[in-house]
Structures are given as C-alpha cells and as structure tokens.
Design a protein around this nucleic acid. Structure first.
Lengths: 211, 211
DNA sequence: GCAAGGGTATACAGAGTTGTACACCTTGAT
DNA sequence: ATCAAGGTGTACAACTCTGTATACCCTTGC
C-alpha cells in the first residue's frame, strides 16, 4: 500500500472521470455487492474521495451502469460496422464469441445487477431497462426492413438469442454458445415470413407451483 | 410474534424436510443474500434449529439448490408429459409462458445464484452446472433423433432459447419472451439440416476491451 | 510565502451479518 | 413420573458494511 511512492502523484485532471472509468470495470468484475472499501482500494483512491464525488454507493453504481451501457453498445456498434443488414446482425455473435473466450467474461452486467439487487426500488433497474430498450432499437435500425413490424420482431428475436448466448456461456460455461446462437440467427433471419404467433397454447391450467 | 399460539405445535415429523421445502422457495423469492435471521423467521423456525440441522448457511443453500433442481425438472417433465418429440419441446415454452406471467417469477434461480455468488469456490456452482447438464440430457432424450448428433445439437439450441426467454422475461420484463422463443424453436426444429457451423468468423482481432 | 482546494489516512458510529452459548420448554418412551 | 431428544428465545461475540468526522498533506494561484 505505501501509496506515497507509487500513487497517482496527486494528478488533478478530472478525478471523477477516472473513478468512473475504473469503478465501472471493477463493478463488472466483482459484482455490485463489493464493498466501498474494496472499490476505493482497487480504484487507487481514498474512500473519502469517493464520497466527495458521489453522494452514495448507490449513485456511483447507477452512473457506472450508465457508462457501461454506453460503452457496451458503442463496442458492438464499432466492431460490426464493416457489415450491413442481416450480415451485421450475424457479426454480433462473432463479437460475442470472442468476448466469451476472454477470461474476464462474467456474463451480462445488467442481468447480473437484476439478479444481485433484489431491492426493486433501486434506480439502477431503470438503467437496466433502458439499456435493453436501446439495444433493441439499435438492432431494429440495423435490420431496417421495408415492413417495420418485421424489423421489430426480428430485433426481439435477436435480442433473445443474445441473452440466451450470454446466459449459456456464463452459467453453463458453454464456450460454443455464441456459435449456437449465430446458427439459430441465420435460420431466423432467412425465414422472413415468421408470424408473430398468438401462441395458442394447448396446455391448460399449468401449475406454476414448483416454486 | 406470539408463536406460542399459532406455531407448528412442536410437531416432530421430519423438521429437516419441512425446512428444506420452505427455505427453497424463500431463497428463490429473496435471493441467496437474504440473512439467516430472515430465513428462520419466514420458515417459522428458530435460528438454532436451522443450525442444528445444517452446519452453515452455505450448506443449507446448496441443499436448497439441489431440491429446486429436482423440483423444476419434474415440473417441466410432468407439465409437458402429454406430448412427444418436437411437440413436447414446443410445449415447454407454453409452460415457461405461464411461469413468466406469475407474480412470483424472479428469473432462473441458478442463473441468479451464478450472478449473486461471485465466490467461485462456493459448492453451489457445481449444483448449477449439474442442473443445466441434466436439463440438457432431458431435452436430448425427448428429441431422440435417429442421428444422435442432431438431437444433441438441437437440445443445445433449445436450452439456449430457454435461457434467452427466461433472461428476457426477467431482465427486460418482456412478457412475450416465451412466445418469441417458441416461434424461434418451431423454425429451428423444422430445419433439420442445420450444420454445426465452424462459425468461421470473418472478423479478426476483435477488441474485448469494452470492459 | 501562503492560503485554499482537493486528496489522504485513520478512526469510528451504527447497522447488519454469521454463528454460538445458555437456559428453558414440549413431547414421547419408558 | 421422569428423562432424554429436539425445539425455542434471547443474548452475544466477532466480523463486515456504509457513511462520516477529523486532522493532515500536496499542489496550484496569487
């Protein structure tokens, strides 16, 4: 710890920014249940500085979620920018694939937050919802079909496949999940005449009392 | 809370069993981060009794995960037992659909555990892996194709779609997720000549440094 | 030179956590 | 009737967590 010798040398330029950058990564890697002391230590900053810039841990977490949302979508956007339309959508799964192989992969930060934070009032949940909505809008804009409803529906399909791939890769540690999802996506995108089925379930009175 | 009047009247018959039944549901509803005191209170049992039957909270959680695994798979199995083959697999999504509409739906307990418990050494992670493997085996047995590899692959697809539906329903609160997944599953199961693509990604040097 | 602003280190209050100690109570078998 | 087994309630030790108080340190502007 002897920070006196190695520390950031009292560099003044926007500490707040630096904190957000570092802590966003820490929260993804360690989960939002990590303690404030650990956050400060990892960020190479004093706990007092944290509380001088952010009124509470909760506020810090929300801003980090927000930042991760922006970074994640920018990352997907830039990494696939060489393709267009359906090809671009398929390229997403190649990007996911390389992400899953990375040792720092720990699933979807937003899904993790939903699971970790059972307090439904936490403002972070709004950020999570917004993140997923923006991702959907991005997918819809890429798929840009002559029929709006087709693009919207297919965007939902792709979003679901992305969620499934991330969850399978994280929970089951299935390193092929992205390839599976890509294969499914190919079939789905080829089948243009998919009907938004009313899903007339033939099963009646399903018992949900397993829980 | 004057348990003396309403409590289980010192009924002796297998308290351990009764505890496991109740606590399994509590852990799903509240998450594994719930305190031991709350667990005891909800279970209508003294904290001492808890520690007399289970050496630690961790052990209790593992046994509850195990129990939920069994109950969940039995539930899926029984609720779809009137169908066979692909029809049965599709019926799974009808069952999921009714689950998602239930107010007590809180996502997949196993995925939630993975997100909540960042301590990778926790024995619960083994239960999670096992759960997902058994579910996959069950799907494979249902799909029972002449070609083993087809059934295995399709089981992976379906498992991924189930994960995606559950995640979308939980995180995005998308009440149509099960219907979307079912629609995709229909297409996937119809397309029998799906190749386990090598997924030759054309994208090179994907930067995973968004995190 | 020196004051002000931003950062640091330490200590601590107050709440909440897991797990244990102890004295008491209820039931069933002998 | 009595005694052991199992359950209860309370209190508590030891720890961790968020957030604050205080005194100090380094840098920059004047």
């Amino acid at each position: 710890m002897d920070k006196s010798s190695t520390a950031p040398k009292y560099s003044r330029p926007n500490k707040r920014e630096q904190i957000l950058e570092t802590v966003s990564r820490i929260l993804y890697a360690e989960g939002v249940t990590i303690g404030v002391d650990s956050i400060a230590e990892h960020a190479g900053v004093s706990k007092m500085t944290l509380y001088k810039h952010f009124p509470s841990k909760s506020d810090l977490v929300v801003e980090c979620l927000d930042r991760t949302d922006v970074r994640y979508r920018q990352w997907l956007d830039s990494q696939t920018s060489q393709y267009f339309g359906a090809r671009r959508v398929l390229a997403i799964f190649d990007v996911l694939d390389s992400w899953f192989q990375s040792p720092s992969f720990r699933g979807c930060m937003f899904a993790n937050f939903s699971a970790e934070c059972e307090n439904f009032d936490h403002p972070g949940h709004i950020v999570v919802q917004t993140h997923k909505r923006k991702l959907n809008e991005w997918l819809t804009s890429i798929l840009d079909d002559s029929d709006d409803r087709v693009a919207t529906l297919q965007a939902h399909f792709i979003a679901l496949l992305m969620n499934g791939a991330i969850t399978s890769a994280f929970v089951e540690r299935d390193l092929l999940a992205a390839q599976y999802a890509k294969t499914i996506a190919e079939v789905v995108l080829e089948t243009r005449n998919i009907v938004p089925t009313d899903s007339a379930s033939e099963i009646k009175d399903i018992a949900t009392d397993w829980l």
